[in-house]
Amino acid sequence: MNASTYSLAELCIAQCAEIWRDQGEVLATGFGVLPRLGAGLAKLTFNPDLLMTDGEAYLLSEPVSLGPRASRDAAIEGWMPYSRTFDLLWGGRRHALVGPVQVDRFGQMNISLIGDYTKPKAAILGVRGLAGNSISHANSMFVPNHSPRVFVEGEVDMVCSAGYNPARWPGGRIPADLRVGRVVTDLAVLDFGGANHAPRLLSVHPGVTVDQVRAATGFPLEVGARTPETAPPTAEQLVVIRERLDPKDLRSTVFKGDPPGDRR
């Protein structure tokens, strides 16, 4: 890949980074390779005030590159053990980028299980911290396999995070400060900014059609008169991704065959 071409992974990293634009001095937590790279890219290019951890117990002064490294040498600016992470997140100054296994039209996520609660077809992680995260701070999502199996028709099998289903709130009153952010996928960028928090198509990746996105989504999407194409990463961003954040090219392992970002 050179500066004029870019991979799908690099396109997604740049879109993941956009999550943290104009977010101020929040803890940026990205789960998985591309979300982590996105957080690092945001911090190094347009939001230097972000807080990031090393995944262990420290706040990093600067993002570290992915893969084996002498992490003990990374400059730190503070301590962030789990107890403090909860103290921080309950206060709301965090924006997480999560990789759910299911998402529904209410923005509710599932990372716990597929099937029945008492005898699941597939036990995954457990609800982890999604309930507390969703009630406390903004959460966006990265979905590498945009399909009706992820974007399900009904509700997700185990609602781990709070979302915009009025039936789940007393008197149908959804908390005013609930913040379900964007969804970056391998096909498009979505959010829940439609009428009454309906899911909405914000942009399609180069070479992807609106119909393709609709067919791969188990629920209806609000679509504007003209859907823009997802903005490609800038030349500066590509340099930061390739030379600074991911010199070992772990991003190329995320999508099968490491396809180009422009699929025309």
Binding site: P120, V127, A131
Partner: peptide
């Protein structure tokens, strides 16, 4: 867990705290 070998109380990890 998939065999239903034990009862579960699945919570947010902050609720455990």
């Amino acid at each position: 867990r998939q065999a239903g070998a034990f009862e579960v109380m699945e919570l947010d990890e902050g609720m455990v705290q």
